[in-house]
Design a protein around this nucleic acid. Structure first.
Lengths: 340, 340
DNA sequence: ATTGGCAGTCCGGCACGACGAGTGCCAGGC
DNA sequence: GCCTGGCACTCGTCGTGCCGGACTGCCAAT
């Protein structure tokens, strides 16, 4: 069983190792922190910690380094996050100040988060499926081609060009536009496809084919829009972190570019909109990120729906500060999106 | 003056160094290539090459390595690019097969190019300013807010939400839409802003303010749209290339993320739509990329306008193959975009 | 102009030893 | 029962010296 002081020792080991990047020994602990006991006593505690696999020695008789499990316990113990500095709060305000476009807001958010934490920042686009259709627009492009634009109440816009192979007049387009909006306007995307299914049958046979093509395109568009997307910033920070990724940051860069793995990871982390969750080291093994840690939190757009944002970095990172930054940015983003 | 054989020697030095990543010496040259002369002769040629600063020795009495100048001469000599393999041509066809959306096409293109070359691939969005306005759409979102959608003939779509603070009815919106399209429909973006300027004055005074807000938003949108954008893929290849960036690939990753530097670089490279240009090593110094080389070519969208695409990698790359890949992809992309 | 030979230079790897940091353990003190 | 000081031991690191290998540069001969 690990004693109370043992936990304190773990805490300072994590802290010092994060700061110095070097294995920390019993002697340096007693001289850098007031423990009121001797180095030998600390050594005993460290022996226990090692037994519990919370810390490990890179080689016999050298300082100790936290294991994934150690970081995990450290993070769990982390009751109150270090609040941000005034300058940082300021930065959030000015950086996200006023923006209208969703793309713009998320783009700024991800850059901000990356700057605050000096890590790779990730922001997921609001998941589409719970959003509602606000409007569907049809625009004739000439040459028998029509552009369909799908606008949701979360402010997202998806457009697509569909080839209908015949020319249609503007009045038919208006009619079709009205019909489509009547059927799916205001409905959640999840239900929209089904609702569209019987639309072609309501038109004259010679037009049904065209309607069918447009509906098929919209259906596809809805499905495609539901695929989650991710914006990312700060990849350069990965290499700046020194040799934390022990030479093979290839899988990390790959995962970032793939996005799929990261989205799955975001999905599997248990998140509500208030807390910041962490996934540490081997907990990410199935995503090829067993050297990395991911901190994430949810943020809410207008409705109750929740998307995610967070940072990715080496296990050896400043969890306290970074989790505080993630939380602050998530909250600010939520409030910003709520008032739109 | 460098002899004919001297140039040949430079060629094999570049080739062997690219392949083996090791400085190449006179002895290994004569045994790997049929020169019909002895190593000592090659050494004399190499001394000349070194005098011209086309090659350099990392340390006294070791093999030679091409300098930027050497690569440059090598590339200039490169008359005929190595044609792509059948498999590669196949890959281009299937990868870019059928796609409608511009985003989709460029996304696939950049991934393809990255795979073909094993380098970081970059594709610039078609520059907007020469594109023409195809259609402007106004969509009421309720709550006194209107979404403006700008569609160009290059297939790009930019949307933006504008807060008009009053409720307007659909008929006014139709009227405004018609007026806007009448004024700027079919005109190049460069002229559109000016053409819009006197639009508010043509409406009833109580509506002019609203028109003014919408027009201002559109003007901004046009300006924002003209900012060039870049899509990128294959950043993971940077680290895979070994230690070519001698530990400091931070500036490279940074430049990739910033985009601005790369766009400037693309802009400064002299490109027409047929040839592939190269910018090597210190030629990129002002962009923080003095360790890297960039290969780029132009591609054309419908009109005559030209955007750019290319790859970025270490100086030590296979110029012949990669330039062929860039050229092939640029050509295929041009033809694909022409037939839309 | 080309060649073979030879001396000189430098890198990389390896073994060796000194040093220092840190541990584990034990006997003794509170 | 917990803490402490001391001591032996283990390793990693760093500097040194040494050797082999791979080149080059130069020169005299062809």
């Amino acid at each position: 069983m690990v004693s109370e002081r043992g936990l304190e020792v773990l805490r300072v080991i994590v802290h010092d190792y994060v700061a110095s990047r070097e294995p920390v020994g019993s002697k340096s602990i007693v001289e850098r922190h007031q423990f009121g006991v001797s180095a030998a006593t600390i050594r005993n505690d460290m022996a226990l910690l090692e037994e519990e696999e919370l810390i490990a020695a890179p080689h016999t008789s050298s300082g100790r380094v936290p294991t994934d499990k150690g970081y995990r316990l450290f993070v769990n113990q982390l009751a109150d996050l270090r609040p941000l500095s005034a300058a940082q709060r300021q930065a959030i305000e000015t950086f996200l100040g006023d923006s209208t476009d969703l793309d713009e807001v998320l783009g700024r958010t991800v850059r901000l988060l990356s700057q605050l934490t000096n890590q790779v920042a990730l922001v997921q686009y609001p998941t589409f499926s719970r959003a509602r259709v606000r409007h569907v627009e049809l625009v004739s492009l000439g040459d028998g081609r029509v552009m369909t634009v799908l606008i949701t109440d979360s402010g997202q816009v998806e457009q697509r060009v569909v080839d209908i192979r015949t020319t249609v007049d503007e009045s038919f387009l208006s009619e079709l536009r009205a019909a489509i909006n009547a059927v799916i306007g205001g409905r959640p995307l999840g239900e929209a496809s089904a609702a569209l299914a019987d639309l072609p049958a309501r038109f004259r046979p010679d037009l049904a084919a065209v309607v069918g093509v447009v509906v098929a395109s919209l259906t596809e568009q809805i499905a495609a829009g539901r695929q989650d997307r991710l914006v990312m910033a700060g990849a350069a920070n990965l290499v700046r972190t020194g040799d934390d990724f022990s030479g093979d940051l290839y899988p990390v860069l790959e995962a970032i570019e793939e996005q799929v793995a990261l989205l799955r990871l975001f999905g599997e982390m248990q998140l509500d909109a208030v807390d910041v969750a962490a996934s540490i080291g081997r907990e990410n093994a199935s995503f090829g990120l067993s050297q990395a840690s991911v901190l994430a939190s949810g943020y809410s757009t207008q409705g109750s729906e929740v998307a995610r944002l967070g940072v990715l970095g080496p296990m050896r990172m400043d969890y306290s500060t970074n989790m505080a930054a993630v939380r602050a940015v998530a909250r600010y983003l939520s409030s910003l999106l709520a008032e739109r």
